[in-house]
Write a protein that binds this DNA or RNA. Structure first.
Lengths: 262, 262
DNA sequence: AAGATATCAAAGATGATATCTTTCTCCTGC
DNA sequence: GCAGGAGAAAGATATCATCTTTGATATCTT
């Protein structure tokens, strides 16, 4: 399929890169999937970069020689995959998106849900990620990371009697540890798993548990600052195991409250 | 799932923010995103399960009181997110999909690419996943898993001189180890990361390296059969570190061939 | 003759196009 | 600053094309 040049834009738009590569359509002979494939491949081939202007619906339709609906279908798919962002209004249109971990997290949540993965499995995977992140954080964390962790600890301490706020702060602390690992792949995966595993309410969080959690977090931050990777990993391992036990118990209770089996 | 009967009388737009906070509104609440949200929420609420029939485009359009275009937009998005599968023809329509790890893997690949995550980061995350998977495999693997691993080892041995085939077989072995862990969350994440990290060609795979890889795989399978979690983890750790070194070197070479920085 | 199989045509569903109105944004001209 | 115009997506409607299932018919086999 040939991309038509279709020079219709007034001013010079150097962003208009034609996707010359003829890529084997996956197995779907629909026009919209061909467009999706071409754009995604152009992205992987670095012909397109985040922020690049892709064009309006009409532009794409003309460029690929298809109707506006087909371009629209392609944009819907690209948007759902987080590849493009679409703005309405004058000067709007489709642009290559910046990374959006949230979209990805939802994709993982959907897949895990569809596959019927249990809470125990998720927490176990999370443990693998978080332990590694803690270890790396003890190696790679910068002074800013240390400050960030200390700040979050102070924040949590102030909110220790407010269960929802403490839960959020705690959540942030775990994410901050992952960020301190300076490995974005780990971070993205943790975000995804937390999106599935982290409860909005935290029914078993008693003041006593909260105090214990905070103490562990403080120890963890200290180990990271002391650059003790093995210690940080070990502590995180125990910590996540404890969280897992509580989470699995909650899940079982919730399940048995609604229906018998789980 | 509530269908909104309100056919769009242009003047009347009653609710502009019907969504709570835990639901993530993608953009301005377009009709199609509302449908997407409802379907996804129904999925999470277990009102919809894989295989359930969702309806045809026309069905959805009537049920939600919108035009076919809107229903189509929603289905495009749901399809891209792997939530539904769409078949054409009589008896066709949209059904809730079974889990599809490939879609998810592509989503991760896109996100990591957009975020500019380096090969080293990806391999490091992969190491965390694979080490944990190896450990769990040594605990949870069944006799079938053991047989599967042995079969793949024999397969790889037969193909040791055929670089692409050996690479594929090797790839399968790693996946089989993750499957033997019986943790689908780990498996899905590994699939995603491999989708990004595993090269189609394997330029640095010399016969000598292949032999070494096969030996390590054999040792690993043995440790899993012997139910030695710590040993399996340690071996996998070393193994992935070796792979990482090669992969990062390849990436650097490829990068410097095209452009200076990376 | 009963059952299995092959073939063909109709129905149903998506794929795709064209054209239109509406609504939302940005930008420009006061 | 503010109102209005222009650009662009959102949405609606109608229509045709293409693909697939499905059911009916016909033929072959037992």
């Amino acid at each position: 399929m040939a991309a038509k040049p279709a020079r219709s834009s007034p001013a010079s738009r150097p962003e208009r890169k034609p996707f010359g590569r003829n890529v084997i359509a996956f197995r779907s002979p629909t026009l919209s999937t061909q467009i999706v494939t071409q754009v995604r491949d152009a992205l992987f081939a670095k012909e397109l970069r985040p922020g690049d202007f892709l064009g309006t619906e009409k532009d794409l339709a003309e460029r690929f020689g298809v109707s506006r609906i087909v371009a629209r279908d392609a944009l819907r798919t690209l948007e759902a995959q987080g590849i493009v962002e679409i703005k309405v209004g004058s000067g709007g249109g489709a642009r290559i998106a910046k990374g959006n971990a949230r979209l990805f997290a939802e994709a993982l949540a959907v897949q895990l849900d569809l596959a019927g993965v249990t809470a125990a499995e998720i927490m176990d995977a999370q443990r693998a990620i978080e332990c590694h992140a803690a270890e790396l954080a003890a190696i790679n964390a910068t002074a800013e990371d240390h400050a960030r962790l200390r700040g979050l600890l102070a924040d949590a301490e102030a909110k220790i009697d407010d269960v929802p706020a403490f839960t959020r702060s705690s959540h942030e602390f775990h994410l901050a540890v992952a960020e301190a690992s300076h490995n974005r792949a780990l971070l993205v995966q943790l975000i995804s798993l937390q999106h599935v595993s982290w409860p909005s309410q935290n029914p078993t969080l008693t003041p006593r548990v909260a105090r214990h959690v905070l103490d562990v977090h403080k120890q963890l931050a200290a180990l990271i600052e002391m650059r003790d990777p093995a210690g940080a990993r070990r502590l995180m391992d125990d910590h996540v195991k404890m969280i897992t036990a509580r989470r699995v118990a909650e899940h079982r209770d919730k399940g048995s409250a609604k229906r018998d089996c789980c």
